[in-house]
């Protein structure tokens, strides 16, 4: 009978089920400290933004800018922003462009991706190659501007959607996902007389919710964050999306006036700037948890299948 020494017992305790050594207590504390600092570095600025947006004007003035802990909650910045002025209108434009644009993008991306998976498609490889090539060669700003201009889209919200409606990367991811669906199901439906459109809408899309959710999120984030296309294509500031308004007030440091807010009461400028920032980030933060369950599956599709 073998007697286990205290040293070997310790070693055994440190050995985890996977065969890896359990880290020592100091190492665990060190790792925890490093990760905590890293998390704090990410979270603290965000807390500062949210806190400042809800802080009273006198505290912001006393602090000379950002505050971390509001003395009391003051939602006047949000009241002012959502009171029907330029910021409110810009929020509406952003929602419209994001929802409309994502719908258009998902539709055209699904149609193209599905088409590229069909074996009966002539020159399928060549067409797929064309899509891939477009990943590496961007048309550039000026040719895109000239195209938008020649289609008569300048100064219209369509200019914020159509030039970026189709992402080659997203099409390739979707094509990979569609191509991975069991061909027997599609064959059976074809034998039963289903048209290509029926195959797409009744079989392929319902089975691809994970991929579509992820691609939809990519598109939505892209539309929501876009400001440069609005800057270039729109002449009427009444049509500006939230991100361009946000840039005007936060990055370019222009003063937010009562007119911009349709409000007689103008809260502290940092509170207004931070409130616009929170509102611009919030929708994406709210949507993400709903899509998270699809995210890993959908995002990995493109990584392992071509």
């Amino acid at each position: 009978m073998t007697t286990m020494t205290s040293e070997s017992r310790t070693r055994a305790r440190r050995t985890m089920s996977g065969g890896q050594a359990r880290p020592s207590v100091p190492a665990t504390i060190a790792k925890g400290t490093v990760f905590s600092i890293a998390c704090a570095l990410v979270i603290l600025p965000f807390i500062g933004i949210v806190a400042t947006s809800m802080a009273p004007a006198e505290q912001i003035s006393a602090a000379g800018g950002l505050v971390l802990f509001p003395e009391r909650l003051d939602f006047s910045a949000y009241d002012a922003i959502l009171s029907g002025g330029i910021v409110t209108r810009a929020l509406g434009v952003s929602v419209l462009v994001t929802v409309g644009g994502t719908a258009v993008s998902l539709t055209v991306s699904s149609l193209l991706a599905y088409t590229l998976t069909r074996r009966a498609l002539p020159f399928r490889r060549g067409l797929t190659l064309l899509v891939v090539v477009s990943l590496f060669f961007s048309p550039g700003l000026l040719p895109t501007y000239l195209a938008v201009q020649s289609y008569g889209l300048l100064n219209s919200l369509a200019a914020l959607i159509l030039p970026t409606a189709l992402s080659a990367f997203n099409v390739i991811v979707l094509r990979a996902f569609f191509g991975g669906l069991p061909p027997d199901i599609l064959d059976a439906a074809e034998i039963d007389g289903a048209s290509e459109m029926r195959l797409l809408t009744s079989i392929v899309i319902p089975l691809s919710k994970a991929a579509l959710a992820v691609i939809g999120l990519f598109y939505a984030v892209g539309y929501w964050n876009a400001f440069f296309s609005a800057l270039i294509y729109l002449n009427d500031s009444a049509m500006w999306p939230l991100q361009l308004v946000l840039r005007t007030y936060v990055v370019d440091d222009n003063t937010i006036t009562g007119y911009d807010l349709a409000s007689d009461v103008i809260p502290a400028q940092p509170a207004l700037q931070m409130a616009i920032l929170v509102i611009s980030v919030l929708p994406i933060l709210l949507v993400y948890p709903w899509l998270q369950k699809h995210f890993a599956k959908g995002a990995l599709t493109g990584a392992i299948k071509g």
Binding site: L142, L146, F228, R247, T248, D252, N254
Partner: peptide, 15 residues
């Protein structure tokens, strides 16, 4: 916005 005007101006000229 003044900070972005040159980009807007250049594309307008090009167009």
């Amino acid at each position: 916005p003044a900070g972005e005007y040159d980009a807007k101006f250049s594309t307008t000229v090009a167009g």
